[in-house]
Every structure is written in C-alpha cells, then in structure tokens.
Amino acid sequence: MSAMSNLSRSDVAHLAHLARIDMTDPELDALANELDVILEAVARVQEVATPDIAPTSHPLPLRNVTRPDVVTPSLTPAAALSGAPASEDQRFRVPQILGEEA
C-alpha cells in the first residue's frame, strides 16, 4: 500500500463505520480529499523509519507499575448513573443491541 493512494468515498465510509460515525456522502467526499492531502504529508515518516530503529510507544522508561490488590470505595449507583441518558432498575438503559458479542 503506497502512502499516496487516493481514498475513495467507500474507503472513508468503511473507516467511518469502524469509528461508528454516521457520515453523509458529501462529508465522506470532503474527508476523502482532505485525508489524501494529510496522508501525503504524514507519509514522510516512512523516509526515515528504517527497520533498525526501535519504535517508542511511550516517553517514559517505566516498568511494572502496579497497585496492590486492595478494594477501594466504589461510586454510589446514583453517582455512577448520574450522567446516564436513560436508566432503569439501577442499570444503564440503552436501545436494543443488534450485534453479537465479540
């Protein structure tokens, strides 16, 4: 896959589906164009990213940061549910779930 590839509307639609954003066609088209330009610019990283260089995912060289297995107070259910768009029986109420669990 070359970095210069042109993204089509359906490429962007697939990405929008993965990201769960319901975009309109004009939006997809505009984004396809913008992403082409941005991708061309950011693909410059490939110029210097040679196989001998180790990737850095984190700026700090920390290891093994853990917490002891100790129970700390939870939120009250009222606080947990305080921001919920809908709730019922002390649970978050959500619209019907169509998909399958992974």
Partner: peptide, 16 residues
C-alpha cells in the same frame, strides 16, 4: 481499579 469483584452484588454497586 479498586472496585470489589464479589459475585452477585446489586447492579452497578461495584463501579467507579
């Protein structure tokens, strides 16, 4: 997180 793992608690009482 420090929430308890006890099985069978009232809904959303072991959340943070």
């Amino acid at each position: 997180c420090g929430c308890s793992t006890i099985f069978g608690g009232e809904p959303n009482t072991q959340t943070c």
